[in-house]
């Protein structure tokens, strides 16, 4: 039951929310009509039905999309999405951080294995972004761990709900929200993909099903990151009775992703050094949250 909810959220709500953002936010801001809401599904199924060109004989390229897809789905099973996560008893936030990193490493591998200079640049940028963005998530989760005394995400969410707002959790939530834009790869920070600059970065040589799996993993990743922020740092609604807690969670992640989409539409891409500077600031904010938590605030 919870398995079905988490997997369904990641696999189907992810592309659907992306479609809503494209139609309701992006097209509205451009004052045009925009594609239908289920356009991401059309794209994914079309890509799955296309020929799979082998742009490199390496096995690594063949399995990298599957690894990324599987890692994100496993991370989705560890994330509280309204209900207690189905694998919540087996993996804590450390396993979660590793799974997310495995997905990023799979993207890097796919980029490095293809002999295109654009994909090399994309892979190195992916590495750089991951190295500055991921600490924010870890530090924020460690803050929650210090406050709640548990490494399990569901316990953190429950603790935050029961004990109400505390300064350190609010600051950590703000830091995580500031990093969300880069975690889901949206515009001021879509530096690794950068369609207009390095033409899709690590994905430039991937065709058909491989590209579809990466894209689907990225749609699911949006939901996973938004769920972490929504469940742990905005704990409203997690103790509702059954259908309503999932509905409340859905509402929270849709609001978060639409907000992210709005920022995506109205911003230009930052240069790498500007993004680095920004994220050092965000890491500083997250560290302040951790220090506050250690002081007991």
């Amino acid at each position: 039951m919870t398995f079905a909810i988490n997997i369904g959220m990641a696999l189907f709500i992810g592309p659907l929310v992306a479609g809503i953002v494209r139609k309701m936010v992006r097209a509205r801001v451009h004052s045009r009509q925009g594609p239908p809401i289920i356009q991401p599904f059309y794209d994914l199924f079309k890509l799955l039905g296309k020929e799979d060109l082998e742009s490199s004989p390496s096995l690594l390229l063949r399995y990298a999309p599957l690894v990324a897809f599987a890692a994100i789905l496993a991370a989705a099973l560890l994330t509280p999405m309204g209900l207690r996560p189905p694998l919540g008893g087996y993996g804590d936030m450390i396993v979660f951080a590793y799974l997310i990193t495995i997905a990023a490493v799979a993207v890097m591998m796919a980029g490095l294995i293809c002999a295109s200079p654009y994909s090399m640049v994309g892979a190195s940028r992916e590495l750089m972004m991951h190295l500055v963005v991921e600490p924010v998530l870890i530090i924020c989760l460690v803050t929650a761990t210090i406050k709640s005394g548990s490494l399990l995400m569901w316990d953190m969410a429950g603790w935050n709900y029961v004990n109400g707002l505390s300064i350190s959790m609010v600051v950590a939530g703000i830091a995580l929200f500031l990093a969300l834009q880069a975690q889901v790869g949206k515009l001021p920070f879509d530096i690794p993909e950068a369609e207009t600059e390095i033409m899709g970065g690590p994905f430039i040589e991937l065709s058909g099903p491989k590209l579809a799996l990466f894209q689907w993993a990225f749609f699911a990743r949006q939901i996973v990151y938004a769920s972490v922020l929504a469940a742990i740092f905005i704990p409203w609604g997690i103790k509702f009775i059954f259908p309503w807690n999932v509905a409340a969670h859905l509402l929270k992640i849709i609001v978060l992703i639409v907000l992210v989409g709005l920022i995506d539409v109205v911003n230009p891409r930052l240069k790498i050094n500007q993004a680095m500077k920004y994220f050092f600031g965000v890491i500083a904010v997250a560290l302040i949250a951790m220090v506050l938590a250690l002081l007991g605030l």
Binding site: Q39, D43, M199, G200, L211
Partner: peptide
Amino acid sequence: RFGIKLVASPRH
């Protein structure tokens, strides 16, 4: 609105 998108790589 027809699902037409300009892509940067012939592989896509």
